[in-house]
Each structure stands twice: as C-alpha cells, then as structure tokens.
Amino acid sequence: MTPDVADPENVPTRRPFPGGWAAMVAVAALVALGLILWFVAAPGDEDSSAVPTAGSADAGFARDMAVHHQQAVELSFIVRDRTDNEDVRRLAYDIAQTQANQRGMLLGWLDLWGLPKTSADGYMSWMNGGHSGHQTEDGSLMPGMATDTEIDQLREAGGKDAEILYLQLLTDHHMGGVDMARACAQQCEVPQERQLAQGMVDAQQSEMQLMADMLRERGSAPR
C-alpha cells in the first residue's frame, strides 16, 4: 500500500515521507485546489454542471488515478534518497510534483461531486473491459503499479542499481497510467476531466521515451 499526503482517509500509509520534497508536495496540493476551481468553472464543449454518478467513468478514473499517482510520488521520494545523480533526481522531482498536483485535482473533484474516494466494486471496474479485482498478494493494486517486493527492492538499492530499477518501475507505472488515462479520455463525460486525462497520456508517453533513453545510457532497457 502507499502513503497518502493529500487525503489521509483515502489510502493507508506505508511510511512517512522525509523532509524537503514533502513541503513541495503540500504546495502542489494547494495549487491543485485553485486549479480545480478553474477547471470546474472553465467553459467546455458540453454541459459540465451535471454531477457524475459514483459508478461513472469520471468518478472511477478520479478514484483510481489518485491511488495510482500516489505510488509514483512514493517511488520518486524513495529514489531521491538512493542516488546522487542529478538527472534522475530532477526527473523524480518533476514526476512527484506533477502527479501530486494532479492527484489533488482528482480528489478535489470527488469532494466537489460529493462522491466517495473508494469503490465497493474494486479498482478499474469503471473501464470497459477493466481489471476489477486486479490486486495481487504482493500489493499491486492496478496494472503498472509496483508490488510491495519491488518497492522494498528500491528502498534497498543504491546508486546505478536504484536508478535503473526506478526508471523501469516508473516506465511500467506510466504504461498502466496511460491506459487508464486513455480510457478516461474516451469514456469520461466531464470535458475538463477528459482534457486532463489526455494531457496525462501525452506527458507520460514523453516521459517514457526520456526514461528509455536514460536506461540506455545505463546499459539497460525497460522491462
């Protein structure tokens, strides 16, 4: 399971975040609150005033991607302390800040809609042909998410080994996230949420290419 810095009631805590970047994440969450209001008020090509239902793709994507993003933030915090390489640390910082910001928006939408942050139907049930009940015995909640064993391996690795494992785990993570975001871009009804989802697709595909290049520089490759 992963720690929750934006909503302690949503996801059980694995381990407290160390200092430094924790303040950054808190600021990103505050920025996200302002962006939520802008997105909700922003004009769209469809009526965005209707509140989605708890079982809708809009609510399901917001719930599941908030959890998915939280693990990327956790992995980025871990690698920060396992390497001195500035390129990897900079990438990890960017991923942590971006995904903490987006996570704040997703949870904020659920609050504005008055919808629960968990679903009795399990993860991914909102997707057409989704993966409800994906959770494995080793803690992988959704496609692309690292297992508890992989997270522990990253905590124990150092230097180049930590860099390679982080880049591989985040590549897998992004692949799962892109599939989810693409599904929302096709299925979600709220235009602002579809816009955010498509932005995730574009940004994470670009980051996957960057991570492939960084792995190649280290004599490795995506898994």
Rank of each mutant, 00 (worst) to 15 (best):
P143S: 06
A32N: 03
P143M: 05
A23R: 00
S56F: 07
D58W: 07
R218H: 01
T2K: 08
Q70N: 12
P12H: 14
A50V: 13
S206T: 05
A162P: 02
T171M: 02
Q97E: 05
E9K: 14
A72C: 04
E74C: 05
Q135T: 15
D152F: 00
Q192C: 09
Q195L: 10
D87H: 04
A23I: 02
R90V: 05
G55N: 13
Q97G: 00
E46V: 14
H134E: 13
M180F: 13
V201T: 09
L37A: 04
G159F: 06
V5D: 08
A212W: 00
E207D: 05
L33D: 15
Q195W: 06
D45K: 03
R89P: 00
V178I: 14
G108N: 09
G114N: 03
A50N: 07
H173K: 07
H134D: 14
Q192T: 12
A197K: 01
I151W: 01
M65P: 01
M127H: 02
T2F: 08
D138W: 00
P222F: 07
V190K: 14
F17R: 10
L169Y: 07
F77I: 13
D111L: 11
M24T: 09
M214A: 07
I95Q: 01
D172G: 08
A72W: 03
G122P: 10
A6V: 07
S49P: 03
G129Y: 11
M180S: 10
S132L: 12
A157C: 01
M208V: 10
Q71H: 02
D148S: 03
P191G: 12
Q168H: 07
C184H: 09
Q204F: 00
A41Q: 08
L107N: 07
G176F: 03
Q187L: 15
H131D: 15
C188Q: 07
S49T: 15
L91Y: 04
F61Y: 15
Q186W: 08
Q99A: 01
R223K: 11
S48Y: 12
T98G: 00
T118R: 13
L37C: 02
G199R: 02
G55I: 10
D87M: 04
A32Q: 08
V11I: 15
T13G: 12
L215W: 05
R155Y: 05
L169E: 13
P191S: 15
K160N: 09
A100L: 10
A23E: 06
A183W: 08
G122F: 10
E156T: 04
A181E: 10
L196W: 03
A162Y: 03
G133M: 09
C184Y: 02
E86M: 07
S48P: 03
A50T: 13
L106V: 07
G60M: 12
G144K: 05
M200L: 10
N10S: 11
L169I: 08
L154A: 04
E46F: 09
F39V: 11
D152E: 14
W109L: 15
G176W: 01
A181Q: 09
E86A: 05
A212H: 08
F61N: 11
T2A: 13
D213Q: 14
S119I: 08
A181C: 06
R89C: 04
Q186R: 13
M24H: 06
Q135A: 15
G34A: 06
G60C: 08
